[in-house]
Amino acid sequence: MQSSKKSRGQINVYFLISIALFISLSIYLIYVVLSYYPSKSETIRMNSLNTKAYIISELIIKDEGFPENWDEDNLKRLGLASNMLELDKRKLEELEKICNSKSLEKLERLRSATGLHNEDLSVEILYMNSTRDTALDCKPFGALAESPYLQRRTAMIKRVAMLEGEFVEVRVYVS
């Protein structure tokens, strides 16, 4: 009987169920793969940004920079420290000049001095007193953390250092 049905182009009901099951499982498999990939990709991206923010924060609070007495015109490697975890007020002022500069060349030099390529950088330094005065607010590439979209894709590392005998909080944002 079956062979006669086949010859008439009729399809077995078991075959239909199998096809439906096959298609639904295939769709589910594709859904799982597609939903899994972006979250991991996002984690990897944030790990990379966090790592870069950490490296820059280490440079800022522990390194003198290069040249040792760098200024806004000859910066090669960023570093704000005079000693370990002690920031140099003069270097803060030099960095502020670069941050407020309209010169694309200086901004690109700053990006290169921090080892960044396509990422943007912001540095905030706040006194840890009751009024939380700002010692430095450097946003050379615009405000990073203001839009919620950018906030999700911004890594922030907070450090503690000294500036002229006072405790300051150093915040490094990379996005």
Partner: peptide, 14 residues
Amino acid sequence: QLIAKDLLFSLEST
């Protein structure tokens, strides 16, 4: 951990 370590280190120098 970074904040805590920085704070403890900075406390030494003051």
